[in-house]
Design a binder for these strands. Structure first.
Lengths: 183, 183
DNA sequence: ACCTGAACACCGTTCAAGT
DNA sequence: ACCTGAACACCGTTCAAGT
């Protein structure tokens, strides 16, 4: 524990601002949440935010990290069973974040920090999916293609309205198509 | 030809504003293109735009319509041959619009007009893809799932950087997987 | 080091006034 | 009917000034 009192206080305040931002981004969306409103709910002046975060995009990146870290932790605990059930679990874990995900895609080209976060996220997700597919018996030369297709389908299902029944049907079909593929 | 001179003039001016908006949206992106800048390049005052379009979103919807209509026209002319080649053609046709597509996904939940356009676009694309799959021998009960997966993969390839070599490989694999599926 | 009030340059949009 | 200058309410961000 290398942190002194001052550093702890700073961390604590940063976390509070982050928590407010996370709630507002998830509830109202990134675009409709102004820095001023985050500051207001955190009980500080708008420009105080900039003492803790470089800009509004840095706030989004920190929120994204917290969401992904939580999902990764819970996935190891709860997501067992067949492949399509695991994918369905992933989908539900990120469902609340679908607005944020759309924002990431729109801003990846506009903001360097979000672009970098997005590229790194896809690298991480890809290797996790490849490991998952490997464990479910998908032959190595197909793992790359299958993981990309699954990634895009997950993103598509998140971005577009779909009932959990439709999701189950589509993911079931996709997984059986990919894992029972002919040579 | 029911249009009189005045109506023609109006149409012409609308088209000019629309052309400027299209160029700027494609070049710089929706978010980085201000209504003021469109007006400037069209040679009118900023608020004149609002005589021809309800708001900035209506401008985007009109640009989207022009892009989709052109692509639909060209597709019937040029996109022949095997299924993956046709999908590759579609991808190239919308490549320049990848920034706009990301914006549509981000704003679909925020703007009623863009949300409606987006839902309608997917209905149209889905039925076109189903017809295409039917023509390529995909059995009817699979057409719905296959068309959604293909839609999501096309969107994914547009949204994320990918070389034409990667695209060819992935689409080839996907089409062969989907069309040679076991019962 | 941390926080603020005030300001800056911009944004989409509206409105009263002109023709 | 069409167009404009001026204004409105907001935005993210900066900066000089305070402690």
């Amino acid at each position: 524990m290398p942190k002194n009192k001052a550093a702890l206080d700073r961390e604590q305040k940063r976390e509070e601002i982050l928590g407010v931002a996370r709630r507002l981004f998830l509830d109202a969306g990134y675009e409709l949440t102004s820095v001023g409103r985050i500051a207001e709910q955190a009980g500080v002046a708008p420009n105080t935010i900039y003492w803790y975060f470089a800009d509004k995009d840095a706030l989004l990146v920190a929120v994204l990290d917290s969401l992904v870290n939580e999902a990764a932790r819970d996935f190891q605990k709860h997501a067992r069973g067949p492949l399509d059930a695991q994918l369905l679990w992933l989908l539900r874990a990120f469902d609340q974040a679908h607005g944020i995900i759309a924002t990431v895609h729109a801003r990846a080209a506009l903001s360097e920090s979000i672009g970098a976060w997005h590229a790194n996220f896809h690298r991480t997700l890809e290797s996790a999916l490849v490991a998952l597919l490997h464990g479910h018996g998908v032959p190595r030369p197909e793992q790359g293609h299958a993981s990309r297709v699954i990634t895009f389908v997950l993103e598509g299902l998140l971005a577009h309205p779909s009932s959990s029944k439709e999701r189950r049907a589509l993911l079931g079909w996709l997984v059986s198509t990919v894992t029972h593929r002919r040579a």
